[in-house]
């Protein structure tokens, strides 16, 4: 499932992952490490909601 950052609107897509933070494609949002932050605005995981 995709998740959207409530602060800036960035959408985390598990099919794409997040290369810059070493998250390969296929990692679900709830599997992301707690240290992962929004790649656009730096918000923590708690600022995300289902998209």
């Amino acid at each position: 499932m995709k998740y959207v950052c409530k602060i800036c609107g960035y959408v985390y897509d598990p099919e794409k992952g997040d290369e810059n933070q070493n998250i390969p494609p296929g990692v679900q949002f709830n599997e992301l490490p707690d240290s992962w932050v929004c790649p656009e605005c730096g918000a923590g995981k708690e600022e995300f909601e289902p998209f």
């Binding site: 602060i7 800036c8 656009e40 605005c41 730096g42 918000a43």
Partner: peptide, 9 residues
């Protein structure tokens, strides 16, 4: 001081 979203990332 980084101030992301005040007003851009």
């Amino acid at each position: 001081f980084h101030t992301p979203m005040v007003h851009w990332p």
